[in-house]
Design a protein around this nucleic acid. Structure first.
Lengths: 132, 132
DNA sequence: TTTGAATTTGAGAATTATTATCATTTTGGA
DNA sequence: TCCAAAATGATAATAATTCTCAAATTCAAA
């Protein structure tokens, strides 16, 4: 039940921390860590327990075929939307008053309490030809 | 290459049309059609071709473990957000000027061109205790 | 309405991402 | 160092989806 510090966990956490604007699949992480990667089953197990503890976020990737992960500890990711570029995968943590206004409006006028943490806005970033 | 009209296709389309405010998995559809359902592999094949043609929309279901489908022909679903209740699954086609404002704002200030058709706002509907 | 070529179907095999199992190894406190 | 709890890794199991291909269906033309 405790949470032993192991080479595998440290490698995964460090890798996720170093890539805050990307969401990666378990396979991506396994491949990227190369020599330092724990076995595949450990990667899945570690990511799963970190997701439960809140240290990382896991979500379905629209367009991919599985889950993707990103570091989330103390980043307030449940409180803001994320923008994700469908082209390059770049993720932006959207701190934006206009989003907050939309959430309020939807609550008042459309009868939904939006859960920012479960919502991702997909689109194209400027570098990928989305915005001018 | 043509598109023959068959019992299975007609049954699936009719079922999706009759449930505009739900998104259903292939398994849901197969089970719900009962006697009239084509074989499982045909359900997947039919939904896949309808997705390609644009007659239905398919997306990953946050929280579920697969794809969900909804009827989309001539409904402009690529032009508006959808709200989905994580509790009961209800889907609302969000026609809302405040959303449009957010999209404009994100384009101008955050450098992303949002793709409404790929974006779903998750939350809880009033009936499920989301809004007052 | 019969014919036939193109298309679709259905049963089951194959694939892919993820989870479960369990013997072995590692961890960290006593 | 010793040891019990916990983590690992190899592999099996699961589940959703896709693929394969022979048999059945569709539909237009004769």
């Amino acid at each position: 039940m405790a949470n032993y510090s192991t080479k595998g966990k440290r490698a995964i956490i460090e890798y996720l921390k170093n890539n805050p604007d990307r969401q990666m699949s378990a396979e991506d992480i396994f491949a990227s860590l190369g020599e330092n990667a724990p076995g595949q089953s450990s990667v899945y197990r570690i990511l799963s327990s970190m997701t439960k503890s809140g240290e990382v976020r896991r979500e379905r990737d629209e367009g991919g075929d599985g889950f993707v992960y990103q570091y989330a500890q103390n980043m307030g990711c449940d409180k803001h939307f994320h923008l994700k570029c469908v082209e390059c995968g770049k993720v932006v943590h959207l701190h934006c008053h206009v989003s907050d206004e939309l959430i309020s409006h939807i609550y008042a006028e459309h009868g939904f309490m939006i859960d920012s943490g479960k919502t991702v806005l997909y689109g194209r970033c400027a570098a990928c030809g989305g915005a001018k």
